[in-house]
C-alpha cells in the first residue's frame, strides 16, 4: 500500500512540476498587468511542438547523448517560444493596455484560438509521437512484486524544475530586472517616473513566462511522448487552476499550486477514477473560488475607500 502511494507521489510531483512552470506564467502576467493571459496554454503547446521538431532535427543529424540533446533542445525551445510570448504581448495586448478591462481578455481568447489553428494548419491535426529519448530508472524499493520506480526522466524533470524555480526566484528577488518587475506590479506610473521602462519590463515578463512554459512543453513532450495542437487548452486551464489555488499574483503560490494540482490529479487517478481526474482538478478550482478566493498564499485584497 505504502509503495503504491510513494509511486503516485513521484508521478504527481512530476506532473506538478509541469503545471507549476506554466502557472508561473499566468501569475506573473496577472501580477504585472492584471489580466489572465488565456493564450498562455497555447504558448506551452507551441513550446512542446518546437521541442518535438528540434528533437527530430537533432536525431536526423546524428547521434547525441540523451542529456546533451535535451540541453540543446531546451535552449532552442526556450528561445523560440520566448519570441512567441513576446510577439503575443506586442501584437495582442499592448495596443489594448489602456482600453477597457475586458478588451485584452477577449484579445487573449482570440490569440489562443489563432495559435491553436495556426499549429493545426501547419503541423496537422493528428497526434505527433516522439520516440522515447531516455529509458530506465532507479528502483527505489520492491515489495510483493510491486516496484517503486523513479525514471531518469522524472529525475531530470524534477531537478530541472527545482533549479529553474530557484534561479527564477533569485532573478525576481535580487536583480534590477526583478525589482523593476515588482515595482511595475505595485505602481506602474510611479515606476515609470523613476525611470523604469514599463513597456520593456512587461515584455520581459511575457518572455520569461513563455520561456518557463517552453520548458514545461519540452517536459510534456518527453514524458508523454505524444502531442497535438489541442494539449495547450487543458494544460493551460489546469495551470491556471494551480495559479488560482496558490493565490494568483504570488510566485511561490504558483509553484505550490502546481505541485498540489499534480498530486491531486495523480492520487485521484490512482485511488478513485482516472476518467474523473479533470473533474477533481476543477472541483478544486470551484472550492477555492468559493472558500478562499485569494488562494493559499495570496494576499487578501484590501480595498481602500
Amino acid at each position: 500500500m505504502m509503495d503504491y502511494f510513494l509511486q503516485q507521489l513521484i508521478n504527481g510531483l512530476t506532473l506538478g512540476a509541469v503545471y507549476g512552470l506554466i502557472a508561473i506564467g499566468y501569475t506573473m502576467v496577472y501580477g504585472i498587468i492584471g489580466m489572465i493571459n488565456f493564450a498562455h496554454g497555447e504558448i506551452f503547446m507551441i513550446g512542446s511542438f518546437i521541442s518535438l521538431i528540434s528533437f527530430l532535427i537533432l536525431s536526423s543529424i546524428g547521434a547525441f547523448s540523451a542529456v546533451f540533446a535535451i540541453l540543446i533542445v531546451l535552449l532552442v525551445t526556450m528561445i523560440f517560444t520566448a519570441v512567441f510570448g513576446w510577439s503575443v504581448e506586442r501584437i495582442a495586448y499592448r495596443p489594448l493596455r489602456d482600453s477597457f478591462k475586458l478588451a485584452p481578455l477577449i484579445s487573449a481568447i482570440g490569440m489562443s484560438i489563432f495559435l491553436q489553428s495556426f499549429v493545426q494548419v501547419f503541423q496537422g491535426a493528428r497526434p505527433k509521437p516522439l520516440q522515447p529519448i531516455m529509458h530506465g530508472g532507479i528502483k527505489l524499493l520492491e515489495h510483493d512484486g510491486f516496484a517503486v520506480q523513479i525514471s531518469y526522466l522524472q529525475i531530470i524533470i524534477i531537478l530541472l524544475t527545482v533549479g529553474l524555480m530557484i534561479g527564477f526566484t533569485a532573478v525576481i528577488q535580487q536583480t534590477p530586472l526583478g525589482r523593476s518587475q515588482r515595482a511595475c506590479e505595485q505602481d506602474r506610473t510611479m515606476a515609470a517616473l523613476l525611470g523604469v521602462n514599463v513597456d520593456r519590463t512587461i515584455s520581459l515578463t511575457f518572455v520569461m513566462g513563455a520561456a518557463l512554459a517552453a520548458v514545461a512543453g519540452l517536459m510534456f513532450t518527453l514524458y508523454y511522448g505524444v502531442i497535438d495542437f489541442f494539449i495547450g487548452f487543458l494544460a493551460g486551464v489546469k495551470a491556471f487552476t494551480a495559479a488560482v489555488l496558490g493565490g494568483i499574483g504570488s510566485l511561490p503560490g504558483a509553484m505550490l499550486g502546481g505541485v498540489l494540482i499534480g498530486l491531486i490529479e495523480a492520487f485521484w487517478s490512482a485511488y478513485f477514477s482516472i476518467a474523473y481526474k479533470d473533474v477533481a482538478v476543477f472541483m478544486v478550482l470551484v472550492l477555492v473560488l468559493i472558500f478562499r478566493p485569494t488562494g493559499l498564499l495570496g494576499r487578501p485584497e484590501v480595498e481602500k475607500v
Binding site: V171, P176, L177, G195
Partner: peptide, 19 residues
C-alpha cells in the same frame, strides 16, 4: 534601490551580470 534602476540595469546587462 528601485529608483536607481537605470544605472543598475545598464551595469547588469539585463540581470545577466547581476546573477
Amino acid at each position: 534601490i528601485v529608483a536607481q534602476h537605470n544605472h543598475l540595469m545598464n551595469a547588469s546587462m539585463f540581470s545577466i551580470a547581476g546573477l
